[in-house]
Design a protein around this nucleic acid. Sequence first.
DNA 1: GTCGGGCATGGGAGCGCTACCACAGGGACG
DNA 2: CGTCCCTGTGGTAGCGCTCCCATGCCCGAC
Lengths: 339, 339
Amino acid sequence: MLTNDGPPTLDDVARTAGVSRSTASRAINGGLRVSPEAQAAVDDAVARLGYSPNRAARSLVTRRTDSIALVVPEPDGRILTDPFLAGTLRGVSDALAGTDLQLVLLLARPGEHPGQMARYLRSGHVDGVIVTSHHRGDHLEAELAGGKLPAVFVGRPFASDDAGLHWVDVDNVTGGRLATRRLIERGCRRIATVTGPLDMTAAVDRFAGWREEMAATGLPDDAYVEGDFTVSGGTAATQHLLDEHPDVDAIFIASDLMAEGALHALAARGISVPGDIAVTGFDDLGIAASATPRLTTVRNPVVEMVNAATSTLLTMLAGEQVPSAPLIMDAVLIEGASA
Amino acid sequence: MLTNDGPPTLDDVARTAGVSRSTASRAINGGLRVSPEAQAAVDDAVARLGYSPNRAARSLVTRRTDSIALVVPEPDGRILTDPFLAGTLRGVSDALAGTDLQLVLLLARPGEHPGQMARYLRSGHVDGVIVTSHHRGDHLEAELAGGKLPAVFVGRPFASDDAGLHWVDVDNVTGGRLATRRLIERGCRRIATVTGPLDMTAAVDRFAGWREEMAATGLPDDAYVEGDFTVSGGTAATQHLLDEHPDVDAIFIASDLMAEGALHALAARGISVPGDIAVTGFDDLGIAASATPRLTTVRNPVVEMVNAATSTLLTMLAGEQVPSAPLIMDAVLIEGASA
DNA sequence: GTCGGGCATGGGAGCGCTACCACAGGGACG
DNA sequence: CGTCCCTGTGGTAGCGCTCCCATGCCCGAC
């Protein structure tokens, strides 16, 4: 029944089912205007032949690529081990089950020209984009604001007031305030923070939350060190912090990964947590629960965020107009033993 | 100069450059049989128009998709934070720079039928495959052994003696022996091991290395617990181990991630490392260096492995015959303070 | 009984590209 | 001086699919 040697084509299916190519195509793509008998015959033929549509041929005429890119403009490889990114990968991948969209992973390459990724995206190789781990200076907002290519940021982009920019995020400012307030309510008064890399909005916003809460309570906001969202960075930042401000009695650390590093640093100096110094983290993606002591942290609802981002993207891909209002999830404090 | 409204096509380039579509195509694809003048004219036109070839159209005729899949048949999301996987992502992505191959990420979905991924791969959506985090029972070797689809495993596949299976790996058995020997040479005699998940060859082989070395020295090999290559799994396994075998004076832990968890468990019980119990790990991908104490471990050369795997795959993609001899990298002991 | 309007179907064009082939021109060789 | 080959070039077919349109058909309305 197969004319050619390669994989079966739509023609083969049509011939096997005893219908025309047009009918076979319709039956395969949703079955509008197809009689039940024709539909059944085609379904049967597809199963028997093991037919799978040729993506390229379909793309050529539909002008869609049926693939979306997950963009990680993070030239530093270490961030790849971050549970946040893991959750994003998992979430996007899962959300794509049931669609026949391919997930194309686009990592910034070390030493790559900043505009290179933007150029790639512009050339129409993917139908849509999810951006995570966005950094100031990666040129992505400007590129994607045009609205030519459907895009959703996971995490507030820097130019977040640009029209036409879609994004979801957790309320990092409130999260930062909650984590800080917890320390204040504990009775701590000399409260420091280890921020994330300040070329990322998550770091900026959590830092702002700390500042706001400190100001609201009338406490000084001079004790802070910039970290990099890694364990070893957390250790280093904490050591630095302790050297500069030996009087701190609490630290809000802008990610659990860094908080873990901080706990190492504190333990190494024989400082008890929360006895001598209380600690709060941010993320609650597994690390907090297994840290010693268990971290008091703020839940970062990655799965929900990524689900929302992906379904927004899918809606845009379906051609529907989506208002570009950001979607901001609540930050919730999670009780631990560290503060 | 552009006839249509969409992105520029090869026709537009040809017309702009004043050559035929054929010549333009040749100039763009390597420039064989193209005069310098024509080449220059085409290059110029491409730059001016911002032309980027339509992948779908090209794929349709070349019968290649210009994309390769990175397959992670690991339904458990936690593994995504493993530095080994991070290194693989980074490595494959980097190795693909310069080619115009897309990297399609294929994560097993929780609850997915085991053969589903194989079916996807069979349908010709990608030109080649790199498999990592391979598990017994994921049906991947059988599927890929046929040689229809170029594939390279990072890490020995279970059916590793199947002809036509390409793979690279570190010498896990020797690595396990080295890590164990180190403990023996230290004078330890009651040496346990925390294995990885035994449905993965890396775990099986490292375990075998431990066994071999223990047997060679005439030591008993009854003290072992199966872990899962995660931090918390390492903690749990170690606690279990200590309860069952209170007399152990050394542990070879089959990954640094688990070793980190083990160090937590040991510290929690007030057991000093290496004083009371010496510890060796496996991987040396950043964790070992930042652990307290610094882990003695075995270097797992991910970057080299993935580079080798990718370039093997690229060679196969180029149509050259590649002998399916495995490529096995040396395991090297890395000095730390934990043993 | 006739006619209009839907629905299921098939025919055919064409998406943008590469591969094949034919051909012109020019140099090297007999 | 003719022949051959080799290089650069353009024309054209066709990859597998979807979409538009024309066709035939059945059913209900008048």
